[in-house]
């Protein structure tokens, strides 16, 4: 979907989140335009959720050269932001119509559950990472401050094709450990 954690570029998630932000902004603008000057803060501020929760989050990672989290974390985070966005949109629609719904609160609850799940998943992944010395996780680009670009470790032979299966499954083992049969 929006996030490809095994890619080394931040470009795709940034573009995806920006597209969602723009869509939310256009949607809220058009809806408010046709609502006979009835305004709802949930509709007016609709684009802020994917902007702050998605785009800026990835941008901060990019600027600070922090690798993007693992697949599970990003998936949970992505869906939590989407759930919040849809909940805000529906709340705005009901506000403008002049009614309420007993079900809109479940979007906030679900979104929070997913967000907490993403945080926990990130924590587990981080703890796993720091508690396994000697392994390097290939979640994202390895960057140095000097070069400012991806630098792959030197003197490693080309990774065999069958290792792509391991990467796709999300198991972040270093190539060197696979070489030495620690898998």
């Amino acid at each position: 979907m929006f996030i490809s954690p095994d890619e080394t570029s931040y470009r795709k998630p940034l573009i995806s989140w920006m597209a969602l932000t723009v869509f939310a902004a256009v949607f809220s603008f058009v809806y408010e335009l046709m609502s006979h000057h009835v305004y709802s803060p949930f509709m007016v501020g609709l684009c802020l959720i994917p902007l702050a929760g998605g785009f800026l989050s990835v941008l901060v990672h990019r600027i600070r050269r922090i690798p993007l989290p693992d697949v599970r974390t990003q998936t949970l985070h992505c869906w939590s932001i989407l759930t919040f966005t849809i909940g805000s949109m529906l709340t705005g629609v009901f506000d403008i119509y002049g009614t309420t719904s007993a079900f809109t609160k479940y979007y906030w609850i679900l979104g929070m559950i997913l967000l907490i799940g993403a945080v926990i998943s990130y924590g587990i992944h981080y703890l796993k990472k720091i508690n396994t010395p000697g392994k390097r996780y290939l979640n994202g680009p390895v960057m140095t401050r000097r070069a400012g670009k991806t630098e792959h470790p030197a003197a490693l032979p080309e990774m065999p094709a069958y290792c792509s299966r391991i990467r796709e499954a999300g198991r972040m083992e270093s190539w060197s450990s696979i070489q030495h049969g620690s898998n």
Binding site: W79, L82, T83, I86, L90, F94, Y97, T99, S101, F103, T104, Y106
Partner: peptide, 17 residues
């Protein structure tokens, strides 16, 4: 989750309007 969210949203809108 995508299918669930879509169906739930459709239900909420139908129930409301």
């Amino acid at each position: 989750y995508g299918v669930f969210l879509l169906l739930f949203t459709a239900f909420v809108l139908l129930q409301a309007f």
